[in-house]
Write a protein that binds this DNA or RNA. Structure first.
Lengths: 246, 246
DNA sequence: CAGTGGTCTAGACCACAAT
DNA sequence: TTGTGGTCTAGACCACTGG
């Protein structure tokens, strides 16, 4: 029988609250003193639990004010995928999105496999092209589990990215990333406005929420216009992530 | 004046010892009790400092035995680049390396820029092809700062990878990664034995040691044979990294 | 057996935010 | 002024490793 430590229990308690929506993005969670009383533990133990969740990016702590559920959630410690619109704006470029498709589709075997759930009959499917200064930089092909989000088809994705929207409705518990180099199809090449023979980075991402696959996304980035970057230092505990356009 | 906390001081103390070689890979560092006495702090403070360094992969803690300098160092929390030979062996494939070049070269402007040091006159240059079951899976093009390692040219890289060797001589303090999709040149295509029109993943990595760029590497992975993968869960604090061959 | 790390407690002092 | 998080201490008990 595995011994469960107090600080792990506290983390689980908070994680469950986040998954069940007890605390939504931006909400203030109970203070350390409140958790000490309600959970009957010492403050140092509460502090460690909350600090670790904050370090992983789920919570934001503001001394003097409180602890809040992160609004801009980092997907993972391993591969931080920030909102593409933020990345572009950070780069002082103009962001624009074009919605190429937004519909409910019958679940095809090919895609269904990724959801690891054969009972799913239909899926939301969106295809969105993201521009930086009117140049296409990302082709986003996304399937969403309807069980996670009933409102998906009603969203105006020229104003909000699917990522931003989904972070509000489905607190993610798990993320999987796969990076590959691929050659785009003729159609994709045309959409992305790239020359023949130019490869793309393909980032495939699946997210889980409440034990089920929530989304399955394929992000295609034209080489030359995009690359993933990351820099890490042991001292000073800060990591700089970059998304470079050229 | 920024206030420096005790646990940060302790981390710096250990990091400095690691950089200066006071404790080498595999060595046992002072126990918590010893650090408590020599640094005049409480054990909880020591524990936090050492735990954080262990979490970042620099140290390995074995309850009952002690704390040791990690031998297999994870490059970063962000993009774990394990030894290619280990990855291949883990995949139950036979690893083999071919040394295509191992020499001292004049520093060319192009490469010198990456080292951010115009005083460098020459560099070690190695080109190594890594195979899995006799199929080429990685073309490694590496430049090494001679100031970091005088023995580089004497190493048998069919038995040790440059990565493994360099981790012994130069404890890395900082890492930069950039991932791109590229088309290999004709020559590279021939070396990697891939068909025309097949893209490659290009992972460029620079490492710093003692404030200077230690190495500059370009790793080319044929698409279809390699992809980076990562999976992350908030619960259970474990991350699974995968390197998939096919 | 002594030494190690892993955790936990019940206090404490501080700087900062909100009111 | 009150509440918040950030840190630190000096103890404590435990499970495990090593000789």
């Amino acid at each position: 029988m595995a011994v469960i430590f107090q600080y792990e229990k506290i983390k689980d308690y908070i994680l469950t609250g986040l998954e069940e929506g007890t605390w939504q993005a931006g909400d203030k969670i109970p203070s350390e003193a409140e958790l000490v009383m309600s959970l009957n533990v010492s403050r140092m133990t509460v502090n460690r639990a909350v600090r670790e969740l904050a370090n992983s990016g789920l919570l934001v702590r503001i001394p003097g004010a409180g602890t809040f559920v992160a609004t801009e959630r980092k997907a993972a410690q391993l591969l931080e995928v920030r909102s593409i619109s933020d990345q572009i704006k950070e780069n002082n470029q103009v962001y624009k999105a074009t919605v190429l498709k937004l519909a409910i589709v019958k679940a095809i075997d090919n895609v269904l496999e990724e959801f690891e759930d054969t009972t799913i009959k239909s899926l939301y499917h969106s295809i969105i092209l993201h521009h930086a200064d009117d140049v296409p930089v990302q082709l986003e092909d996304r399937f969403v589990n309807p069980a996670i989000d009933k409102t998906y088809l009603d969203i105006d994705f020229t104003k909000t990215t699917p990522n931003e929207h989904l972070m509000q409705v489905a607190p993610l518990a798990e993320v999987e990333h796969i990076i590959e180099a691929i050659m785009p199809t003729k159609r994709e090449r045309k959409i992305l406005q790239i020359a023949e023979g130019t490869p793309c980075l393909l980032l495939t991402r699946r997210t889980w929420s409440g034990g089920h696959v929530a989304t399955y996304v394929r992000l295609k980035y034209p080489s030359k216009r995009f690359r993933f970057g990351t820099r890490f230092s042991y001292r000073g505990r800060k990591s700089v992530h970059r998304a470079a356009f050229s």
